[in-house]
């Protein structure tokens, strides 16, 4: 059961990575003459359309992570401590705290992309918040992957 939840948690992470990276890269790219290249096609999307999906996937991923977390605490962290892998414990602690902070960023992220405010005045804030969320999700995904390679939950 816990392995299934972990796989779903990972798949949600993949979808979230795709959506946020797409939105962040697109938001960073300045409008210029389109050439029809891969980069142009990748960045030439309606950025607002990702917002609701990102919020939903983030919340779902965090809830699933919260459900799995006790299993990690009992079956993974204690062996890490016994193996004196303090850095691995530290990496996971950062993952959980960053994920929690990301939850707090979601409302203002959604607000900055909402139709009333998605104008030029908030462009810098919107861009930074999107990049920040993307960085959090990339960190959490990679650290989760590394720690699962060190010692899985099952």
């Amino acid at each position: 059961m816990i392995t299934t939840l972990l796989i779903i948690h990972g798949l949600i992470g993949v979808a979230l990575l795709g959506a946020l990276t797409h939105q962040a890269v697109s938001a960073m790219r300045r409008p210029s003459k389109r050439t029809g290249s891969f980069v142009d096609r990748y960045t030439g999307v309606n950025q607002k359309t990702f917002t609701a999906t990102v919020v939903a996937l983030y919340v779902l991923g965090l809830i699933l992570g919260g459900v799995i977390y006790p299993n990690y605490r009992l079956n993974v962290r204690i062996p890490f401590e016994e193996m004196r892998l303090g850095w691995a414990v530290g990496l996971f602690e950062l993952k959980e705290h960053f994920a929690g902070i990301g939850l707090g960023v979601l409302p203002v992220y959604a607000y900055s992309w909402s139709s009333q405010t998605a104008d030029r005045s908030n462009e810098r804030t919107r861009r930074i918040l999107t990049i920040l969320l993307a960085a959090i999700v990339w960190w959490d995904f990679l650290i989760g992957h590394v720690l699962n390679n060190l010692r899985g939950l099952a």
């Binding site: 850095w87 530290g90 960023v105 203002v108 900055s112 930074i128």
Partner: peptide
């Protein structure tokens, strides 16, 4: 605060890194 709101999560992340530094020593 709208133009500076991003400072708060970044500062909180920095606080977390600082408080957890002992685990990486």
């Amino acid at each position: 605060l709208i133009n500076l709101v991003w400072v708060f999560p970044i500062a909180t992340m920095a606080v977390c890194i600082f408080l957890l530094r002992r685990l990486f020593q």
